[in-house]
């Protein structure tokens, strides 16, 4: 049984049919790289997996939590699915440590001391153990994104979604974030990432999923697909970004 099971997923934005029947199975420990042009539906697909976008037809199942179209109670699902955003979205009124602790305290009702220890451990994991008391605006973009990763990890999700997490960063800060993600992949965390970092996708990804006009156009082993794209669309996409 796959950890994430997506079955015949459809979504419309008004008259625009953005997801046209997505079927995707993701096994535990896999690193999935979702690629494609803007407007191909890759971010929308990612965002449906934790319910930030609703869908019109089909079904998503994550670790036995099944959601249907127009589901409103998404808390159980969201405890299993963590997310890291392009714009970090740290809570600016809280310190890095408080950002990481907040949901474990509020949602998981973890005692304060335990939540604090966990937050410290998570910040250590992303190399920011000395920034516990720093506010987000005192951190660089790369550091903020690493705090955001720690915040998502503290909830001990089964899957971590990454939505173009290096796209808003200055080029010299990209690598520190990718290094953290690479470590997570090595630890066996299941990752689904929308990314434009093709070299990273090729190096770290277990499976490459190329989205084109709302469909999965091509999917498979990253090395093979990059070396030998089966469709002209993927070939042209790879060509356009290299």
């Amino acid at each position: 049984m796959a950890l994430v099971h997506i079955d015949a997923l459809h979504k419309h934005f008004g008259s625009n049919h953005v997801l046209k029947g997505i079927d995707l199975d993701i096994e535990e420990g896999q690193v999935i790289a979702l690629i494609g042009r803007s407007g191909s539906g890759k971010s929308t697909l990612l965002r449906t997996i934790n319910g930030l976008e609703s869908f019109d037809d089909g079904c998503i199942e994550v670790d036995g939590e099944r959601i249907h179209p127009h589901e409103t109670d998404l808390r159980a699902l969201r405890q299993k699915v963590g997310m890291v955003f392009q714009q970090f979205n740290l809570f600016p009124h809280l310190t890095a440590g408080q950002n990481v602790m907040l949901a474990t305290r509020i949602v998981k009702k973890m005692p304060d001391a335990e939540a604090r220890d966990l937050a410290k451990a998570m910040l250590l994991k992303v190399g920011l153990q000395d920034k516990f008391d720093a506010y987000p605006d005192q951190l660089s973009g790369g550091q903020q994104q690493r705090v955001a990763i720690a915040r998502a990890l503290a909830m001990q999700p089964r899957v971590l979604l990454c939505d173009e997490i290096t796209s808003a960063l200055d080029p010299e800060l990209v690598n520190e974030v990718l290094a953290v993600v690479k470590n997570l992949a090595a630890e066996g965390i299941t990752l689904i990432m929308v990314t434009h970092e093709m070299r990273f996708a090729r190096e770290v990804g277990d499976k490459l999923v190329f989205m084109y006009q709302g469909r999965i156009h091509e999917a498979g082993d990253p090395q093979e697909l990059f070396a030998n794209p089966q469709t002209p669309e993927l070939a042209s996409f790879i060509g356009s970004i290299n």
């Binding site: 934790n50 319910g51 930030l52 998404l74 808390r75 969201r78 405890q79 699915v81 963590g82 997310m83 955003f85 714009q87 979205n89 740290l90 809570f91 907040l102 949901a103 509020i106 949602v107 955001a148 915040r151 998502a152 909830m155």
Partner: peptide
Amino acid sequence: KGQWEASASLAMTHVE
């Protein structure tokens, strides 16, 4: 809006 999305993705309720 990102603040709503980030807190929602951490499984908080609307009130939280």
